[in-house]
Nucleic acid binder design. Structure first.
Lengths: 275, 275
DNA sequence: AATACTAGTTGCGGTGAATGCAAGCGATTA
DNA sequence: TAATCGCTTGCATTCACCGCAACTAGTATT
């Protein structure tokens, strides 16, 4: 092309070539921004455009579309945007609502007994997704880990969730998750298999600073009416607070998980039918 | 080529004409479908295309994009899709922000009517956390969320926030909170249960110098679209200022809380779904 | 009061990404 | 071996998005 005249506003300046599914990515950037917004500092069109480095006009139109679909809402006064009802409806409907609702009182009981934060986790792909967290009072700014995922084989909850998989499936899980930024040390498959054998025997899993320095935790499986493991109850805390009573916590977690499983219709008589 | 005469109503577009922001609408249709899907009956590409009446190839590509962004996930075995982790992350992070933003105008209305400071409170573990306060002596919005927590069973807001818990959960709440620096006197569980029964009946809670000498207050529950209690609106003031009109304030708080709940999507028709 | 500035919306032409058909591919079934 | 099913990919058309710029409205500044 012609050499760029300095005064000429060259629009070719490596600007963003449109990528496939750019619209989706743009919309999600916006939603992410709205989700993390400070409630005080409002987000208007210009501010959003500035932060994302995009055109005002696009943001205006994209936000209008998002609003029309219920994914965003606008304050009539300040013209600022926020997340819309539909996002919550989607998450609530799609999430294991029933499971979360039923499990919450059990989590509260755990918190009451241990005075530590308790989580309900499920498996999403090869990662552990925390659906619900209940914290005792000393956890300021709860900042629930809800929605955060971590690779499965590293955590007690993850190991519980895959504890009835076939050895072969476990190996491929390791292969998949192992490519992620590895933890302190890559666990060999045999290690994991032995660990899981222990989990089956004891009924609960415990980790001791494996996932994160200074962090210990226990998890126990929750089964549905078919006997399939559908979730894990997990307690995590600094080693100084929970380390000394880790086994007690494990047994309690197992007990509570069994009661929750019973409420879900699990009947322990039958063998291990599925999965 | 020659553009069609503008006057001519070209009916050829009658088929499926692409609408603006069609991509967003299509993606949301897919997510809605995935959200409402029976966890057992999986949704493959063809089935989704059939249900939505769209091209297989589009669904294949759209789903691939959604998966790349974390909004959908695919089972490697069956090739079936389901909702992805990112949706949950968005909803979890954005929830409180949205609550505060929507609630603030309602708090202002309360202040305007009563000329007393009004709070929006949520439950954090077994403590009540004030997310937002609005004062009559306009402005100095003290640093947004105050972050001040107080034990739940002692305050009207706390009692409202746990007013749909199971009796057993309430007992363990008392056990936990009771270990904290206790208030004037530990309330027996039966007292709390009776109090909460009254709250359910009236729709709002009132305390009369129970938490602090000379302080009275009223609170009413705010429910989200599922019917779950997610927050409480609270008015507290010295007895000399508010004591005489406490019932009026309670009824007003209830009304405002109901309107706020409605804006959050709460539909009072259905029974009390859960928790 | 007039002016500048900020914040948001709308109009417009060019361009490339989405569309839909059809062919390819790899299982599972007959 | 052939047929079917579920899904992906190639390709030409065309329409919706892109960026710019002009416009409106409200607010601060002189």
């Amino acid at each position: 092309m012609a050499p760029p005249a300095s005064s000429e506003p060259d629009r070719l300046r490596s600007s963003r070539t449109q990528a496939p599914s750019a619209g989706l990515r743009r919309d999600l950037e916006i939603l992410e921004l709205l989700a993390n917004a400070d409630p005080q500092g409002g987000l208007g069109v210009s501010r959003i455009a500035e932060i994302l480095g995009r055109e005002k006009s696009q943001m205006s139109r994209a936000l209008k579309a998002l609003e029309a679909e219920g994914m965003a809402e606008r304050d009539g006064e300040t013209l600022e945007y926020r997340l819309g009802w539909r996002l919550y409806a989607l998450a609530a409907r799609g999430g294991e609502t029933r499971l979360v609702q039923i499990a919450t009182p059990y989590l509260r009981r755990m918190v009451g007994a241990l005075n530590e934060t308790t989580h309900l986790c499920v498996l999403r792909g090869s990662a552990v997704l925390t659906l619900r967290s209940v914290s005792p009072s000393h956890a300021f700014r709860g900042l629930g880990w809800e929605g955060v995922t971590v690779p499965a084989p590293m955590t007690s909850a993850g190991r519980v969730l895959v504890s009835d998989w076939e050895p072969q499936a476990l190996r491929s899980l390791l292969a998949e998750a192992g490519t992620l930024p590895a933890g302190p040390r890559a666990r060999a498959a045999d290690d994991l298999l032995a660990e899981i054998a222990g989990i089956r025997r004891r009924g609960y899993a415990a980790v001791n600073e494996e996932f994160e320095e200074g962090l210990v935790g226990v998890s126990a499986p929750v089964r549905d009416f078919r006997g399939a493991i559908v979730a894990a109850i997990n307690v995590s805390a600094p080693k100084g607070r929970l380390g000394s009573r880790l086994d007690d916590a494990g047994r309690l977690t197992l007990t509570v998980a069994q009661e929750l499983s019973a409420e879900l219709g699990f009947h322990p008589s039958g063998g291990r039918p599925l999965r």
